[in-house]
Design a protein around this nucleic acid. Structure first.
Lengths: 155, 155
DNA sequence: CTTATATGGTCCGACATCGAACCTAATTGG
DNA sequence: CCAATTAGGTTCGATGTCGGACCATATAAG
């Protein structure tokens, strides 16, 4: 019909659907498993925030965390409130911007993150077979290309 | 320390984390894009139910749909209520099981699904490049292995 | 047959997430 | 220097999802 290279033919459309379906199911199943390996009612998103603070260093703004986690600032406000109530983080004023805050890890937060990693690695480690790690490694670069592209083109 | 082949070394643990992180981000970004391409407040999960009914045929039970969509029956009850209110499905008694229901597509539901596909294909089609379809195709089989494994081992 | 258990579905409460509206402070234009 | 716009955060209401409790029917055990 058309020669526009960006027009989807039926095969492309089918690939698109099945690909994102697989991604969605894997995400859902792995997140459910992940959630079960976390202690009493700590959501994976909470763990991710703590993990991000450990890896990139704390003393950063909620907005930056929200950007890294791909969630809205509204969601981040809520998540940080939960983490504060659990004693895993503290917040203080931002000396460079009177509108903003800075987020800091507590010792409890750091310890919780370490324990959670042990728990998660234990659960997945007893489940996955060596071939699965091989697959994950093989898929890594392709996924990265797609992730970066989607990230750059989001609206 | 140990020779247990299922004990994760640091490289495996890192692969595990980065893999599921990529999956999570791709899922989130693509779902957000997907949601934006659907008309006025129809959630991707609602579309998926309609799509499933078209592809596998209607007149099936809510439980079967829930299994296929990987959600709980509680969630399915809610989703079907929304779809019924929008006039996209109807439900009737199950002649073979007095406890159960059967779900049927309406003409409006079928039309909505078709229109949504056009919209989604249009949005992604104008965004993705040929190389991305190639990548998706290459990743398909590996993702399928992981998905099936997670699906069989969920608890 | 009667009882125990499993299954289809709904209701309720909890929670993560989002968008819209809003406030405050920073930045930019004039 | 002042007005307009941008950016960091919070609050509010809505929605999707889940787990637990519950009801009704179907199936299995005795």
């Amino acid at each position: 019909m058309t020669e526009d290279p960006k027009t989807l033919d039926q095969r492309d459309a089918a690939r698109l659907f099945s690909f994102f379906t697989e991604i969605g199911i894997i995400n859902q199943l792995s997140m459910a498993l992940f959630a079960k390996s976390l202690p009493d009612g700590v959501h994976p998103s909470h763990f991710s925030i703590l993990n991000h603070l450990v890896r990139t260093g704390d003393g950063i703004t909620p907005i930056r965390i929200a950007g890294a986690m791909q969630v809205t600032k509204t969601t981040m406000t809520h998540s940080l409130k939960v983490l504060t109530e659990r004693g895993f983080i503290t917040t203080g004023p931002n000396p460079e911007d009177a509108r903003g805050k800075l987020v800091y890890l507590t010792e409890a937060g750091r310890a919780f993150r370490d324990a959670a990693i042990q728990s998660v690695v234990g659960m997945f480690g007893h489940l996955l077979e060596p071939e699965h790690y091989k697959i994950m490694e093989e898929l890594g670069s392709g996924l990265e290309v797609l992730r970066k592209f989607l990230d750059e083109n989001r609206m």
